[in-house]
Amino acid sequence: MNNMMIGRYLPLDSFIHKLDPRLKIGSLLILLVSVFFDAGFLGYGILGLFVILLLILSKLKFSQILKAIKPMLFMILFLAVFNLFFIQRGNIVFQFWIIKIYDQAIIQTLYIFIRLVLIIMMTTILTATTKPLDLTLGLEHLLSPFKKIGFPTHEVAMMISIALRFIPTLLEETQRIMKAQASRGVEFSEGSLKEKILSIVSLIIPLFISAFQRAEDLANAMESRNYNPEAERTRYKQLHWQVSDSLAFTCVLLVTGTLITLSLI
């Protein structure tokens, strides 16, 4: 829990860190979509190289990305195995008892594996290089066109930034309560099913109570300062689109363009 990498901001000083959050969010969305174009292994090779380039530019270490992938590994493997056994197209390459494995299944499984790893890498790059508050600011800007049709842009952005703000607090709280209960003889990783359930209960209940308490305190603090979500507000922090942002966006579009072309031919 101490070494959680997913969604964590890493305060480094890099080219990617300095890019406009709007650009980074937009690019992530575009790249996420292009992951799903069937551009063959060549396409994934290109996208993979591009992501590795981003990694190097953002000064993140490969080990940090691995840490982000690790908690998801179980899910990825589960999906992969599922696919391997249940896709029944193409030629059988392996047969044992009632298990048949087809060549299409192997290819699809590899695709899924590559896609998920790429998605996690790209998302981690975004969250590791962008401060949570910049992230919500960017999101609010990107969503602002929808204000015209009554979408509560500001409220949504506020909710997201509060949620992001409290993730580390809740993790810390979880750790604190786990330690307190461990001092009372709870072993979170061992024991029978009944003991496990009891140990989870001893964690969840105090966690919820303190989360509700915090929510109430925060709401009171905001209200007593007269917070009104509908009020027109100005910003201390302004976003400035720069040449480097346009340049980066062009690169993203080029990569996506290549992938689309590859998937069409």
Binding site: A180, S183, V201
Partner: peptide
């Protein structure tokens, strides 16, 4: 060891459940 050494945390009231 945990039985031998009883540890009361700062603000232990948050561990009641």
């Amino acid at each position: 060891l945990r039985k031998k050494a009883g540890l009361v945390f700062q603000f232990p009231e948050y561990q009641l459940f």
